[in-house]
């Protein structure tokens, strides 16, 4: 949706006021977004080379498998990652970056 400059300014002013009203919440959310983005960048970088299983991604990124699974599930839900197949032992699904996702 395209919005006018005036509308954008009004939204921006409202958000500044709300951030002042909810300082702790806004800070915590900001920290969470930063952490999530850093993790997603690592996962996307690993996925650039081709499909990976959850343990493979964990090994490459140095993360816990449980955390990798959560982020991959989230990225799949919101369209950044797709499931593409299974590993040779048919124990784990493999995941790839979805088409059009910035690597």
């Amino acid at each position: 949706m395209t919005i006018s400059k005036e509308e954008a300014k009004a939204i921006s002013e409202l958000m500044i006021a709300k951030r002042k009203e909810h300082v702790e919440t806004a800070k915590a959310a900001q920290q969470l977004v930063k952490e999530n983005n850093a993790i997603r960048r690592k996962l996307k970088k690993a996925l650039k080379s081709g499909p990976h299983t959850i343990p493979q991604l964990a090994e490459e990124t140095g993360m816990e498998t449980v955390d990798v699974l959560w982020h991959i599930a989230a990225m799949e839900k919101y369209g950044a990652v797709i499931e593409v197949g299974m590993d040779e032992d048919e124990e784990y699904y493999t995941y790839s970056l979805a088409k059009g996702v910035k690597k």
Partner: peptide, 9 residues
Amino acid sequence: DMDHCIFCG
């Protein structure tokens, strides 16, 4: 969810 909002608009 106002408990987790970053207030980015």
